[in-house]
Simulated scan of single mutants.
Amino acid sequence: MFHKRALRLFIGISLFVAGYLYYVHHDRQQSIAKFFDNPKVGDIYKIEKEDDEGKYTHYWKVMETHEKGLVFVPSKFKAWGSIDYLQRSFDEMLPFSYTHEQLKALRDGKLNSWEHDNLKLIDIVRKQ
């Protein structure tokens, strides 16, 4: 009796977590599709980087858009997961830029060089 109840609880929790993860992934893919081709100043790009130490999420804020690409400033922090309160503090003294071609490769998970190894765009947040 106890084992049956524990098994049902485990299955229920597992289904809930799987459903939630699917929803988050689907929501992120929709935001990338919606905002990628129409960037605006203030958009926040969540970038996942994987290295020997694990996976980290970096936050890049769009500071300027121009015909060749975007100018970003990095968050002052990085995290092991996607933590929204880290979207508040950016280092405006360290701007960097990416061309539209580099951003498309980043979105597709194909941007590889010694400087940009294992980067992937996982979300775009636009404050309304």
Results as ranks from 00 to 15, higher is better:
H100A: 11
L86Y: 15
M63G: 07
I11W: 08
E48G: 03
G12R: 09
M93G: 10
Y45G: 01
K110T: 04
N38R: 08
Q29T: 04
E92H: 11
K34G: 02
E67H: 06
Y59P: 04
D37H: 14
E101Y: 10
G54C: 09
I13T: 04
T57P: 02
L70Y: 00
P74R: 08
V24C: 15
K40R: 14
E92S: 11
F16C: 08
G69L: 05
T65N: 05
L103G: 05
L103Q: 03
K110E: 01
I32N: 00
R28S: 05
F16D: 00
F77C: 10
D37W: 10
H66L: 01
I32M: 06
V41P: 03
L106M: 07
K78S: 12
G54W: 01
K104L: 09
D108H: 13
D43P: 02
M93S: 14
N38A: 06
G12M: 09
A18W: 03
F77W: 13
W80N: 11
S75R: 03
Y59C: 05
V41A: 14
G12H: 10
I83M: 13
V17E: 08
H66W: 07
K61F: 03
H100L: 15
F72M: 07
F77S: 15
E50M: 15
E67W: 04
F96I: 02
G81R: 11
L103H: 00
L106T: 03
L15M: 13
K104E: 11
A105N: 15
E50W: 14
R107M: 02
R107E: 00
L21P: 02
G81V: 12
I13F: 14
K78T: 11
V73F: 07
I47S: 04
T99C: 10
D84Q: 09
F90C: 10
R8N: 11
G42I: 07
V71H: 02
I44L: 06
P95I: 10
S31M: 09
N38F: 05
E92M: 10
K61R: 08
K55W: 11
E101W: 07
K61D: 01
Y85R: 11
Y59N: 00
R8D: 12
R88H: 09
D51K: 08
F36P: 00
V41H: 08
G42T: 04
F16P: 00
E50P: 13
D84G: 15
S89Y: 13
S31I: 00
K4L: 12
A105I: 03
F72P: 00
L86F: 14
K49S: 14
H66C: 03
F36V: 00
N112A: 03
Q30G: 02
P74D: 13
E48P: 00
L70I: 05
Y23G: 02
K34I: 01
Y98Q: 09
G42A: 09
F10A: 09
N38C: 04
L15E: 06
G42R: 07
D91M: 13
R5I: 15
K40M: 15
Q29V: 02
V62G: 11
N112F: 13
K104M: 06
Y45A: 02
K110F: 01
E64H: 05
H58N: 13
Q29R: 12
W60T: 02
T99F: 08
L94A: 06
H25I: 00
L70W: 03
Y85F: 15
L9T: 10
R8I: 02
R88F: 04
R5E: 14
A33D: 10
N112E: 12
D108T: 05
I32F: 01
